[in-house]
Amino acid sequence: MIGRPGWVWIGGLLLASAAVAGEGALRPVTIVGREIPEPLTTAPGDPERGRTLVVDRTRGLCLLCHAGPFPEERFPGNLGPDLSGVGDRLSPGALRLRLVDGRALNPDTIMPSYYRLQETVRIGAAWRDRPVLEAQAIEDIVAFLITLRDTPSERPVP
């Protein structure tokens, strides 16, 4: 992680700064421990929009790798863990970090980093200088994923 462009360790916090100006600029993200506790947007995430993104195989892309409690969706992939009950297993901040940049936790993960400008090469012309998903979409998906509970919810489902 150390030395990756755009990322700096400060006092135990990993700070990512949006180094790119213009439309592609990313909002600053602060990793604390293994989470991003603060939402990326001021508007709260919308779980319904989040679900729509999760099952959209051309936008969220999630079902290409993950199964989950989506009875109408056939043929999910199995590269990643099943999303059923993920809201029991991970906090909103932990989910947010996995979406924003799971490679901060595991540099070898196959999971794409959805909210960082990749340092990888040959990005297709249509995809340059922008993250896989915008900040509000990340928040929408986090808001949806925390509703996926196997156990009775201890907090009201949004």
């Binding site: 790798c65 999910p76 992939g77 590269l79 196959i110 040959r122 297709g124």
Partner: peptide
């Protein structure tokens, strides 16, 4: 083995490490 593209994947990520699994269908 090189990660490329917006998704930061490599050929090896799927075809060395995950053959036999499913990407979607």
């Amino acid at each position: 083995t090189r990660r490329m593209g917006q998704l930061g994947l490599s050929c090896a990520a799927c075809h060395d490490g995950n053959h036999g699994r499913r990407l979607g269908a």
